[in-house]
């Protein structure tokens, strides 16, 4: 069965591009526009990996990661931050919250696929 990924980004263009890239490579994708929606969408589902933006309305990336990591079902799901933020402090904050990798936009779709493959195969 195809692996499922969750993409969280409030910019539809970014989310769409990421989702399309992944779908074209045979992954299943769930999309959400912010942390809150992502948590709702995830209910009862199983995902292999989460890619999330940092700056989002309602619930930002870090809060979302913290919330996700507190759920037993998602405790060990690898999370990648895909964001324009490159400040060290934020990165550290992300790492502390349990972010596995930090990708800074702009990204090349192939590079993203590379990271995904490396993490979940």
């Amino acid at each position: 069965m195809a692996k499922t990924l969750l993409i969280v980004d409030d910019a539809v263009s970014m989310r769409g591009l990421v989702a399309m890239t992944l779908r074209n490579s045979g992954y299943e994708v769930i999309e959400a526009s912010d942390g809150k929606e992502a948590l709702n969408r995830l209910q009862g589902k199983k995902v292999s990996m989460v890619i999330t933006d940092l700056n989002m309305p309602n619930m930002n990336g870090i809060e979302f990661v913290k919330a996700l990591k507190s759920l037993p079902a998602f405790k060990f799901v690898p999370i990648v931050m895909l964001t324009t933020e490159s400040e060290d402090g934020k990165k550290q904050e992300g790492k502390d919250a349990g972010v596995k990798a930090w990708m800074v936009k702009p990204f090349k779709p192939d590079a993203l696929l590379g990271v995904v493959r490396k993490i979940i195969g």
């Binding site: 910019a11 263009s13 970014m14 591009l17 700056n55 324009t84 933020e85 800074v104 936009k105 702009p106």
Partner: peptide
Amino acid sequence: FRGVHTIKGSAGTFDLGEIS
């Protein structure tokens, strides 16, 4: 700043070099 930063990041991803 974040707004402009977001535009920059997205523009880069879409290969819009001039904008970024």
